[in-house]
Write a protein that binds this DNA or RNA. Structure first.
Lengths: 193, 193
DNA sequence: TCTAATTCTTGCACGACGTGCAAATTTGCT
DNA sequence: AGCAAATTTGCACGTCGTGCAAGAATTAGA
């Protein structure tokens, strides 16, 4: 009851994370198709029905961390100094994200590895990103008043980051991920108004 | 014996198209969730089991046309004159696509409208595009030898086209789609080697 | 503290889905 | 014609997502 978290919300957050973790762990061990929703629920100590109260499917559970990552990114972008150019803010926020949330994040890496093996996850992730494109666009509009351009920036930005991660996963650590992504972001230019 | 299409392949192509059309028509009429796979199979005159021999789910069936569209685009890109700049080739091929396949394509518009109402379709479409990014990259590599850049171009290009279509759907025909997309493509630049 | 209201969990039941399998049908070729 | 290969179909099975109502936990108010 200290912060803003009432006990109720706290427990909800706990089970949610518990489910996401269980999903990730089991999917890593048996492959995504070798795990049922019931397995995940059991591992987390809740019922199959409760799982569905939190996630729409195992893919959603596995990618839960990824979503909060992008939400954090949106927050970082909107926290950049006012007046900063839109694309610059995106680049800087991305760098900050990697500083705040250092790359050798065990869970995140596990997600990425799964992402490569299971294309169905890739699809779901892309779908999530399309949804988050709206939030990102809303934040960018404050820096780039032409909504058409803001939208375009959000889309190309997310596509670039995705590409960077994909390249990095294939390259197997020849270079630091933040460096690679930043280089790609430097290559892309979206002409403003 | 007769044409290049043996009777067998011909019939397969017919049922596939029949299924895709039925899926589209029924989804337009009752909404995607108001249609079962069995409904679609009945409409096409085949069994539920046969549907699964062609598509992994109703979403796949609905988006079938969209996929062939992008495949056609890939073909157009690789048919551009050799030596043409990669991004230029993409722009030109896109313009050709709209000329070859004129925009007021009834079925395609139906797909787009469904796409807006059902985010699950958006997710699946994005997933398809991620898969097709590989083909597009392979074609681009001939024009842009740095694979990293080719990959980045494929990703940003597809993201840009998607954004254009989304903007066009919301704007409700204030401007021609080909013009809008081409303008967006003109705004984006991916710095080559 | 006790109680009532609110919120969350659980089990049940149901329709829908995807798939392996084997039988039946269709097509290709001689 | 007749045989081989490919395709369709029905059946069965495990899994999935969800509405619903009952039960348990948490909150808020006296």
């Amino acid at each position: 009851m200290e912060t803003l978290t009432t006990l109720r919300e706290h427990k909800k957050a706990v089970t949610r994370r518990s489910l996401a973790r269980a999903a990730l762990r089991l999917a890593m061990e048996h492959g995504l198709d070798g795990v049922t929703v019931e397995d995940i629920a059991d591992e987390a100590g809740v019922s199959r029905r409760t799982f569905s109260n939190y996630f729409a499917g195992k893919e959603d559970a596995v990618l839960d961390g990824d979503r909060s990552r992008i939400q954090a990114l949106v927050a970082l972008v909107s926290a950049r100094p006012a007046g900063e150019e839109a694309w610059t803010a995106l680049r800087a926020a991305t760098a900050e994200l990697y500083r705040t949330w250092p790359v050798p994040d065990v869970e995140w890496m596990a997600q990425l590895r799964l992402l490569r093996r299971h294309p169905s996850l890739l699809a779901r992730q892309a779908g999530d990103q399309v949804a988050l494109e709206r939030d990102l666009t809303a934040v960018l509009v404050l820096r780039e008043p032409d909504e058409e351009v803001a939208r375009l920036m959000a889309a190309t930005f997310l596509a670039t980051v995705r590409t960077g991660i994909a390249l990095w996963l294939e390259g197997a650590g020849e270079q630091q991920l933040p460096v690679l992504v930043d280089r790609l972001l430097g290559r892309v230019r979206v002409q403003g108004t």
